[in-house]
Amino acid sequence: MERREVEYFLAVAEHGSFTGAAKALRIAQPSLSAAIGQFENRLGGKLFHRLPHGVRLTPAGEALLEPGRQVMRDLTTAQDSVHQVLGLTSGRLDIVAQTTLAVDPLAGLIGEFLRHHPKVDVRVLDQELGKTVTGSVRAGECELGMVDSGTDPEGMDGIRLRGREIYAVLPPGEHNAKRIGLSELAALDFVTTPEGTATRGVIEDVVAARDLRPRVSVETAHQAMVVPLVLAGAGVTLLPASMAAGAAREGATVLPLRPKVVRAGRLFWRPGPLSPAASRFIDFAMNSAKPASRRSR
């Protein structure tokens, strides 16, 4: 099969219609339909069910989806590798991350990476559920993934990210102490995201240290809604230092935990060749995870 055929197939699958795919590819819709038809004839079966409003993948199309994505990624990796050998600065980096990790440390890592490689295009997908992040990397939609986990997802290679201290975020003026103990914290009502998310995982693990389950007053799928709910008095939450600092600037009471709680996520990828951009980004992440005294040597 040819690269163009796979590219066309993936575009139709992504957009759910020939019209949307043709617009994204900037080709005429009849030309795209004809190319897909010829591709199906060569394969010996239909890849799409043609519906009154769009298309749906057939079982054959479903079977081609993940290998097709990997073929396109392998071709891009090969092209980027040639560019690197020739001294060209280019490439694309696709990363999927849970929200809290996207804020810290991913944002800082990308900034540092782009200062050294300004012509690399970076795309970040926000998948709050850890299993969704893993699925995106496993399916070839993204080359790298970040999850709040102590181990690499099954079948993946990865590295440990630098630790992030976790802080309690409470409504304004609710607590006068300089720290808050885990037993006292466990007795409060929490504002959190759904099960399987990074924020929820931190809360459950911290409260579990006192053999309890968190009392959830508000559960929201919108991470950006958590701090406003805390500010409105709906409950408390736990956030890494950078996000907690932002909450403090908005008026929330932010306290370190006693004892200190530090979380370290994972940067992971599928085994096998990586694009030059991904390999270099992993180097940046590994260097960032080292203690400051070692990085300065």
Rank of each mutant, 00 (worst) to 15 (best):
V82Y: 04
H117R: 13
V85C: 04
S149C: 04
T99R: 03
L65M: 04
E154P: 02
P240D: 06
P172N: 13
L238G: 01
A224L: 09
L51Q: 09
S81M: 07
A289V: 06
H49T: 14
A78P: 03
I180T: 12
K260R: 12
E40P: 05
E7N: 10
P273H: 15
A168H: 00
L274S: 03
T76M: 11
R56I: 05
C142W: 02
V12T: 07
P228L: 03
E250F: 10
I95V: 14
D283E: 10
H15G: 08
R160M: 15
V202N: 01
Q98Y: 06
E184F: 06
A102S: 08
A285L: 07
G158W: 02
I110C: 04
V71T: 15
G272V: 01
A209Q: 10
L10E: 06
E40N: 07
G150W: 06
P153Q: 10
V227W: 00
V122S: 04
V120F: 01
K260F: 02
L32S: 06
N287P: 04
V55Y: 03
A177C: 12
E184K: 15
A285M: 07
P291N: 07
I36H: 00
K119R: 13
N41V: 07
I159F: 02
I166C: 00
A11K: 09
E250T: 11
I95S: 02
D74E: 14
T58H: 07
A244T: 06
S288V: 04
V230L: 06
S31L: 15
A208S: 13
T199D: 01
G37K: 13
L88K: 14
P276E: 01
P172M: 12
G45W: 09
V261Q: 11
L43K: 02
Q223F: 11
A289N: 05
A289E: 03
E195V: 14
P256E: 06
V206H: 00
I110Q: 00
S136G: 10
M156N: 05
H222A: 13
P67R: 11
G145I: 03
T19P: 01
D80C: 03
H49W: 13
T192G: 05
R4Y: 13
A139W: 09
I166P: 00
H222N: 12
A198G: 08
D104M: 07
S275G: 08
E143H: 09
G108A: 06
L238S: 03
M156D: 01
R249L: 14
P171C: 09
E14C: 10
E66F: 15
Q79I: 13
E250H: 12
V254F: 10
P153H: 08
A278Q: 08
L182F: 13
T199S: 05
P273W: 10
A278Y: 06
